[in-house]
């Protein structure tokens, strides 16, 4: 595991107001999640941007003031709490009717479980996105193998078709699928550990990674 990339390491950096790198890294990791999360909750782009911005600023303020106690809950839960109040506040300011339905249906902000689920879904997506990125850029995997995987899994093409398109044997297409899937799973597991967001990680006695800050 890349220890500098753990959330623990990021948080440690945030204590120092002059540590621009920590700030940036934190922002890079959590802004897209918060943005997607706000959209999941039914917000339009500009409103979602506003929420992401306000949440990050507020979090860092509260963190530096020592209001955030890691032993009391996960970082994600803390962020969700801030974002949820921001959204309720925003709704009030903009006078959004709560019962609005249809394409961009708001999720019920009073329902904490749905709100948390929306955040968790987005966080998981961020991990998966990063994993895909890493697979494409940081591993020396043959682009053709990746392409075969994409055609099979993303586009639902048959192995025979993929084999024909790429000039491979169908057997190699199957091997590509299983090996890329395994590689991705490996990356995802590592990234999840770096994020330390699995339930229990932030409480007492979590996985070894959580003990770093003890």
């Amino acid at each position: 595991m890349d220890l500098d990339r753990t959330t623990t390491a990021l948080l440690a950096g945030l204590f120092d107001p002059r540590n621009a790198a920590a700030w940036e890294a934190f922002d890079r990791r959590y802004r897209p999640i918060l943005l997607g999360f706000a959209r999941n909750c039914g917000l339009k782009d500009d409103a979602a941007n506003e929420i992401a911005q306000e949440t990050i600023v507020r979090f860092v303020e509260e963190y530096r003031e020592g209001k955030y106690d890691r032993s009391r809950g996960r970082l994600g839960a803390w962020l969700v709490t801030i974002a949820r109040y921001r959204m309720i506040d925003q709704q009030r300011r903009r006078g959004v009717a709560k019962v609005e339905r249809g394409e961009s249906a708001m999720i019920d902000l009073d329902d904490e479980q749905s709100v948390s689920a929306a955040y968790e879904a987005e966080r998981r997506r961020a991990v998966l996105r990063e994993a895909l990125e890493e697979l494409a850029t940081k591993t020396k995997t043959d682009p053709k193998t990746i392409r075969a995987f994409e055609m099979l899994v993303y586009h639902g093409l048959s192995p025979a078709q993929v084999a024909e398109d790429l000039g491979m044997s169908t057997h190699d297409v199957y091997l590509a699928k299983s090996r890329i899937a395994a590689k991705l799973r490996e990356i995802v597991e590592r990234l999840e550990a770096e994020f330390e967001e699995s339930p229990g990680d932030w409480g007492a006695g979590g996985r070894p990674s959580a003990r770093l800050d003890a």
Binding site: R125, L132, T137, P143, E150, L166, A181, L184, R185
Partner: peptide, 30 residues
């Protein structure tokens, strides 16, 4: 065991939502 599980579904849904693939060569035949 994970080959038929939700994992690949998850990957596919994220990939579908991702902006265009970063490597233009990936698009050649597809």
């Amino acid at each position: 065991t994970f080959l038929h599980g939700a994992f690949l579904e998850e990957i596919a849904s994220v990939a579908a939502a991702r902006p265009a693939n970063t490597d233009p060569n990936h698009r050649d035949s597809g």
